[in-house]
């Protein structure tokens, strides 16, 4: 289990390659990369991501541990950034490795749903016309009931 919470940029392609290279016994690797999306009007200066340092890594470990147990994952990687991130930058990445693709896909989907609503991160949109905290979406909370 590789969990990283960091302000620094990362290279999703290089991470995916390294993760895959280390997963020789696995038949399936699924990766997901979350990107900072600009507003429709193109006004986003950056996304400010705040987190709870004492709790972030431990809560992600707990979520990832559940995914490993539930889908018998061979490996799991979670990278989540914090700080100021410009449109187009990678915010986070999840990778799962399993014997078969169904488990790798389901575990990645599960991890994303839980990271959205249960990992202590908060996003603030800093735009050319103001700044606002991003509200949690009811559908993100509802998505947890799928699991």
């Amino acid at each position: 289990m590789d969990i990283r919470v960091q302000p620094a940029t990362f290279d999703p392609g290089a991470e995916a390659n390294a993760f895959t290279a280390a997963s020789r016994g696995s038949g399936a690797v699924v990766t997901f990369t979350g990107i900072v999306r600009d507003t429709e009007a193109g006004t986003l200066r950056h996304l400010e991501i705040e987190h709870y340092p004492g709790m972030t890594a431990s809560s992600i470990k707990a979520i990832a541990g559940e995914a490993v147990a539930r889908w018998s994952l061979d490996a799991v990687l979670v990278i989540h950034r914090h700080g100021a991130l410009a449109p187009g930058e990678a915010i986070m990445m999840v990778a799962t490795a399993a014997r078969h693709r169904a488990g790798a896909f389901a575990a990645a989907d599960f991890l994303m749903d839980y990271l959205k609503s249960r990992a202590p991160f908060w996003k603030k949109e800093v735009r050319t016309d103001g700044a606002d905290w991003v509200d949690a979406k009811a559908e993100d909370e509802a998505a947890l009931s799928r699991w």
Binding site: M92, K116, S117, R118
Partner: peptide, 12 residues
């Protein structure tokens, strides 16, 4: 020892 208060989380 420690209590944190915050809005609903918006990770991912």
């Amino acid at each position: 020892r420690e209590i944190a208060v915050f809005p609903p989380m918006t990770g991912g």
